[in-house]
Nucleic acid binder design. Sequence first.
DNA 1: TTAATATATAAACATTCATTTATGTATGGA
DNA 2: TCCATACATAAATGAATGTTTATATATTAA
Lengths: 119, 119
Amino acid sequence: MDALVLSFKALADETRLRILKLLEDGELCVCDITAALDMTQPNISFHLGILKEAGLITDRRQGRWNHYNLNLSGMLNRVLLPTAIERIDGEKVAADRLRLNAFLDAKAGGKACCNPKGI
Amino acid sequence: MDALVLSFKALADETRLRILKLLEDGELCVCDITAALDMTQPNISFHLGILKEAGLITDRRQGRWNHYNLNLSGMLNRVLLPTAIERIDGEKVAADRLRLNAFLDAKAGGKACCNPKGI
DNA sequence: TTAATATATAAACATTCATTTATGTATGGA
DNA sequence: TCCATACATAAATGAATGTTTATATATTAA
């Protein structure tokens, strides 16, 4: 039962649902998510830690980047993740997408990853 | 998204999962649940309030008794409740069932509802 | 090898949540 | 009408959680 509580606790937070929603379209690194949600990096790392601890996401280290992905393995995750993601919506989610795209564009423009605007 | 967070918050607590598990077999009044979980009555009422607020259970007042039921209406509940209840298990759940049955037997024996042992 | 980048971790603080104790309210029986 | 019962609500406390600020670690580039 503990694992079940851990999963529900991880899902019981708006910030973490917003992160899962972004991951629906594929893996992202911490700086992508930080830019998209417009929050501090340690805060995002904290929430990613909780999602990972609950087994809802996996991480893949590559150099200094840590890429996070949805973990769709296991019966519980295959029920909970689509059920949740399907219902995550609203103004914040739309704004997250806009900021993420702007950030990814800046990255593609050849600038540094976590500081694409050179600030 | 708020309603979704509310649902997950309600499910993210062991005590509330134990209550849902008991309700799987049919409606119960507050004193039944209080006896089964061996907790204080205001604490049980607190948790029932959160489950009701999240729409996971309904209540039916009859005289001085308030009977609570699983609310299986709505797509989200029809996914979440079975998914959760199916996975709620362990020693505490077994002990809850034993205490509940003892309490229901005492009630059937003609004693007062919330104080079947006359203490 | 020095500096910058990406991320994690730690400490401090604020907030939310669970639990207990105490009290209020409504219902039904004596 | 009075009392006991079933439950809810309020206040107080303690524990868990989220957020920020500061710092540490690891990797890459210059």
